[in-house]
Amino acid sequence: MKHTLCLVLIAMGMGLPQIAFSQLNIFACEPEWASLVKELGGDRVLTTSATTAHQDPHRIEARPSLIAKVRRADLLVCSGAELEVGWLPMLQRQTGNRKVLAGQTGYFEAAQWVDRLGIPEKVDRSMGDVHASGNPHVHLDPRRLLQIALALNERLISLDPSNTQHYQSRFEGFKHRWQMALERWQRLAEPLKGMRLVVHHQDWDYLFDWLHIEKVGALEPKPGLPTSAGHLAKLKQTLTEMPASAIIYTHYQNPKAAKRLSQLTGIVAVELPYTVGGGEGVTDLFTLFDVTLKRLLKVKS
């Protein structure tokens, strides 16, 4: 039986088309990283995203199509800080692809390259789904995103040194455009300083850190737990004492809770894109911030 198995395995291996290695095969865990990879890699990379803006990156299963993708990947680009802890380690373990294991050059963890917010002093399940390594939703601060881009650029070069020139010039180009955009965004966002918002989940901490926006409350009573009528009543109480400008949520979160609180309090509920693909016209990282700021400014005016 062992022989038959070996023969089958060899036969399968030989029957496969030889994949050209001119392009790096990159598996991004979330759309924001797929977008960054495209900015930095251009035509030298083949990118696929494990999740879309419609899916909660906490709650993905290690499904067959993802196993097949990780199997062929040269590099995984993920948020890290335990955001993907429910599914990524399982994918890494099941695929027999040693290039992309934790600690290898083929595994890039974005959150590792920036200062993280919300690192808890203690972790207990009664606190909900908290991440011991801090808040993983790091991409919503464009300053931190540039730091990540720098590290990712170095990673691409070390994986594909023959194209160093290509990656370096793409990174310089991206950095220039990003810095220009950053200046523009900061000017635009001036009126948002001190704005008070209610969030659905702790997705926005980095955006708020950048724009000096204050988080007044969250629709989730504890991270990862669905909201309840009792919790909404409590929030309403808080909001009558200290009003907020808006209640924000994103596509993969059920808008019902935000809309319910909006009815109770008269505070407007606003959907923000959160990531690339999360709203009309949000086709890359630049438009992600354009649209986010536009929607927040509309609330403010």
Binding site: L5, V8, L9, I67, A68, Q94
Partner: peptide, 18 residues
């Protein structure tokens, strides 16, 4: 147990156990 995941678009896993 030995198992193998094929490097294909479609997920394919083959294996055997003694």
């Amino acid at each position: 147990q030995i198992s193998w995941v094929a490097p294909t678009e479609l997920y394919l896993k083959l294996g055997g156990e003694i």
